[in-house]
């Protein structure tokens, strides 16, 4: 809960967090080492200095640290776990639904557990998805389309098997599809970050919500254009929100574009924890105002009411969270 200077309480849902195991003993190969090093560089590039961790802590910070950083220090009332399996890079996986389920067990009122699927897993993967819903009652999945799997370097949501998985997800009662693009989809001559397949999927599955992680960056321009046309496309702000401290002008420009094209009802705050911590992002975000020139040029504003939607209300709608009831429950505990 974030309390404003006026004493108003803002319910915060961090819609993008991880609990990963990237210790050297879990790394399968050089790719596992390079993957976590790259994440760590993101932390180092944008965090205030006091929030930069040593490498060993970054590789494995554990559930207690996560709880402290998100829910004690970080103003978050709830957080959504977004799994990333990466079983070609990590022996037991990087951040699987099963690993995250332990977190959910420890802090059941705080954690929303999402699952994941990979259409390259064929029929067996469809059964796994069904088991995830049966076991954990998930209503959201996280897809990392650039995950390496043997010779395959990724997939597109327009692939026939991806369509089958989305049909299955819908039939199982899953509502929210979080999509993260990566750099290496085959064929390599195409733009791997292209978000056009999300457009196809959103049109084919109007009852599903597609939350595009990192607001489509590095293709924010194309993402905005798709979101204008597809009412079931949302933007997750992880990465973009981390610019609020070190690069406020770029953050302002991105927010102005998003509010102009996507609108205040379809943007979700996310820290991408453990890359960044919600504490400093939320403090800076709450203190942040869109510069006058951008307000004049775009006609949008980042008012306290808009911030409240982005920090929690929009995610609460997607995940069926009754903010009042949940606040009362958390306070009672």
């Amino acid at each position: 809960m974030f309390k404003t200077a006026d004493g108003e309480s803002i319910f915060v849902i961090d819609a993008h967090i991880h609990l990963w195991d990237a210790r050297p003993e879990n790394q399968r190969n050089i790719h596992g080492a390079q993957f976590i090093n790259c994440f760590h560089d993101y932390q180092k590039a944008l965090s205030p200095e006091e929030y930069i961790w040593p490498a060993d802590k970054f590789q494995n910070y554990g559930p207690e640290t996560l709880y402290e950083d998100l829910f004690v220090q970080g103003y978050a009332d709830m957080a959504i776990c977004q799994p990333t399996y990466l079983t070609d890079f990590y022996k037991d996986g990087f951040n699987t639904t099963e690993q995250n389920a332990q977190l959910k067990e420890m802090y059941p009122d705080r954690i929303v557990l999402n699952g994941a699927f990979d259409p390259r897993d064929g029929e067996a993967g469809l059964e796994y998805l069904e088991a995830l819903v049966d076991t954990h009652g998930i209503i959201g999945v996280k897809l990392y389309t650039a995950e390496w799997r043997g010779d395959s370097k990724g997939y597109k949501l327009s692939d026939p098997w991806a369509q089958r998985y989305l049909e299955k997800a819908q039939a199982l009662g899953i509502k929210n599809i979080h999509v993260h693009k990566g750099p290496t989809i085959l064929p390599l001559n195409r733009d791997a970050f292209d978000v056009a397949d999300i457009d196809d999927a959103a049109t084919s599955f109007p009852a599903l919500n597609f939350i595009v992680d990192h607001v489509g960056l590095p293709r924010l321009d194309d993402f905005c254009w798709i979101a204008v046309q597809e009412p079931n496309v949302y933007g997750g702000l992880a990465v973009a929100s981390a610019f609020v401290s070190a690069r406020p002008r770029y953050f302002a420009e991105i927010m102005a574009e998003l509010l102009f094209w996507v609108g205040e009802d379809r943007l979700l705050f996310g820290s991408d924890y453990g890359i960044w911590q919600p504490k400093w992002i939320i403090e800076k975000f709450m203190a942040f105002e869109l510069p006058e020139d951008l307000r004049a040029e775009t006609g949008v504003d980042l008012t306290p009411a808009v911030k409240k939607k982005i920090l929690g209300e929009n995610a609460a709608k997607l995940y069926g969270i009754d903010i009042e009831a949940q606040s009362a429950k958390l306070q009672a505990n």
């Binding site: 560089d41 960056l217 590095p218 924010l220 770029y250 094209w261």
Partner: peptide
């Protein structure tokens, strides 16, 4: 102009992120 601005903002954001990542790397 509004459509062009979208493209410009994206490119400048990406370039800035790349500079930051290269620096720490």
């Amino acid at each position: 102009m509004t459509a062009l601005r979208r493209v410009r903002v994206n490119a400048e954001f990406n370039a800035n992120l790349c500079r930051g990542l290269l620096r720490v790397r």
